[in-house]
Design a protein around this nucleic acid. Sequence first.
DNA 1: CAATAGATCATCT
DNA 2: GATGATCTATTGC
Length: 189
Amino acid sequence: MYRMRPLPRSFYSRTAVEVARELIGCVLVKGESSGRIVEVEAYVGENDPAAHAARGLTPRTRVLYGPPGHAYVYFIYGMYECLNLVAEPEGSPGCVLIRAVEPLTGMEQMRRRRGLVHTEQLANGPGKLTIAMGITRELNGADVTKGPLLVTKGGKRAEIVTTTRIGIRRATDWPLRFYEKGSRFVSRK
DNA sequence: CAATAGATCATCT
DNA sequence: GATGATCTATTGC
């Protein structure tokens, strides 16, 4: 189907903020599970004190410096994985953290992985959504313009709320978190 | 309700 | 050796 085609690489080859805002309302797909992206954060590169790229090119941040449209999946707190999409042209390490999705399909599989929680809480956080959708470090570096993990265009354009980012210690006042206004599926208002 | 503690390990200093 | 883009359970008011 036309709608199911992955977003092209050119979509991601813009500033992290542009990509972040445009991703709201798009659909994240992996296998039979899919969800509408309702909350994201932009990490804007080496000059962003809260970004992993703030310390430059290391083994971990390698994919951030690669071409846009790839997944950056990292392990945090000894327990969770977080999904980012690499933005900006190759060599510029901006990215977008996917913080929450509204489950659309494959909810049974998500419940199997996440437990018997309400639909709103299946994927309303960066760690929760990777568990719900089965996204692991094996997908680090994966090309999301191809699959098995991909993003497609959403339906109608969402109204977006801008706030400061969550769970970071530095640059806590930078307005780089975006979520869909009125959504019950965001991690926190 | 809000605040806090604990889990648990890859990454970088 | 300290830290962290988290989550859950528990404690306290």
